[in-house]
Structures are given as C-alpha cells and as structure tokens.
Simulated assay, not measured.
Amino acid sequence: MFETCPKEAPFLSHTGELFKQVDGVAMGSLLGVLFANMYMAHVKEKDFQHHSTPGLYARYIDDIFITSSTDEDANSLMTALQNNSFLTFTCERSNQRRLPFSDLEITKDENDFRTKVYTKATNIRRCLIARGEFTAAYKLSVAAAYINGVVTHCNSWTEAHRKFDCIRQLLTNSGYPDHMIGGLIKKKLVQYTTPAQTLDSQGHMITIYHRNNYHDRYRKNVMPLKVT
C-alpha cells in the first residue's frame, strides 16, 4: 500500500494514455507533502544530534530559515544537512537585515522580527478579472486569498492596513465590488481576532473549527454543537 499510493496509481494524460510514476511521488499527490515533511524532520533529527541548534530554526517543507552569528555557522549547518540527506541546499543571506522567505519578507529589528507579504519586483499587480467566465465562488476565493495573506503574514497593524489599501485598489481595478471587498476584509479580521471557542466538560477552552473548513462528506455527518 505504501508503494502503491504514491507511485503505482496510474494517472490519465490529456491524450487518454495511462502513465505510472516510477520515481518519487506523483505530482499532485496529497502524500507528497506528508512524506516530504517526514523526511525533513528525520534529517533535522539526525543533524542536530551532532550539530548545535541555531538561535532560530523555522522550516516550510524544505525551505529553512535560521539565525546565526557568523557565516561559518550557517555554512556548517548547510553542509551537515546535505551530508545527512540526498538534497542539495543553497544559502541566501539577509541584505540590510531583510530576507525574503517563501511569500514572507522578514526584517530583523534589535530584539524582534517584522514580517509582511513579500512582493517580487517583477509583480505587475494584476489578478483575475471579476467579469471573467468563472464561478462566483472562484472569484470570491481569489479575493479572499489576497486578504487572508495580509492577516496571516503581517505582524503589525500599520503594515496590514497599508497592504489592505493596496489590495482594495488592486481588486477594485479588476472589477470587484466595494461591498464584497469590505465584507471579506471585515470577515477575515473578525475570524482572526475572535476565534470560535467553547468549553469542554472540564471547563477547558477548546477551538471549534468553522464547518466550511470540513470536507463535504464529513460536514454532512457533523451534528450541531450545543453549549449549555
């Protein structure tokens, strides 16, 4: 089963031919991210048995963010990671205390980090046109993705408000109505500042995830919660 799910399950090409993955995990397989995380956790565990832990270590799949006192420390860790895996790593250092990491831009202050949405210089600031031949739900998800990125990536309200203004202008230029943009921003901020919570039988606070995040098959079986 372990071999069959990620590799041997055939997939259909646009020409109608069936193909089978012979190396690695099939593109688009949900198991790909799971296996990648498991492997990188194993590599980290092996590496830190013989290497000192950096001041800060954060990882998204195989992208790793660390802080180090010297270039030698960073190079030493990179070499150790390569020796304990079959991967080849490259190293990008901060420039003027700033570093892009995935879709974040991280800035180092004296005692803390500031984060915001990273926008490449080549970004022409266009998005899906609202009058295009797409479903309403898809258009809504496009706008929501921009707004959700601000809420999750900006750790200062000043930067968040600045980015909201940029996104509002971008979506307006693309034909999205003002009431939809404002409603989405309000909804995301409410979800972020007041997460849905309730108490369990022992009086402990627990988080109840929004039912829209459930899979369709599971959502039908979820009974409404009653809090007394």
Rank of each mutant, 00 (worst) to 15 (best):
G24V: 10
T135H: 05
D23W: 15
M205F: 13
F48S: 02
S69V: 13
K186L: 13
Q191V: 00
T90I: 08
P10N: 05
H215E: 02
I64F: 08
G32K: 00
A41R: 10
T53I: 09
T115D: 12
L171Y: 02
D178S: 15
I185V: 15
T158F: 09
R168M: 09
F113Y: 12
N84F: 00
P10A: 09
C127Y: 02
L87M: 14
A160G: 07
T79I: 05
T158I: 12
L170A: 07
N75Q: 03
D216T: 08
C154I: 02
H153K: 13
V22T: 11
C166N: 10
R59Y: 10
R125A: 14
L189N: 01
A58M: 14
P195D: 03
D63N: 07
K226L: 10
T228E: 10
P6S: 05
L199V: 13
K46S: 13
I206K: 13
A160T: 01
E133H: 13
A121F: 03
E72T: 10
R126C: 07
R131Y: 01
T207Y: 09
N84C: 02
A137P: 00
Y39V: 00
G24N: 02
G149N: 12
I124S: 09
V25E: 05
P6Q: 05
Q49E: 09
T207L: 06
A80L: 06
F134T: 03
F35H: 04
M78R: 03
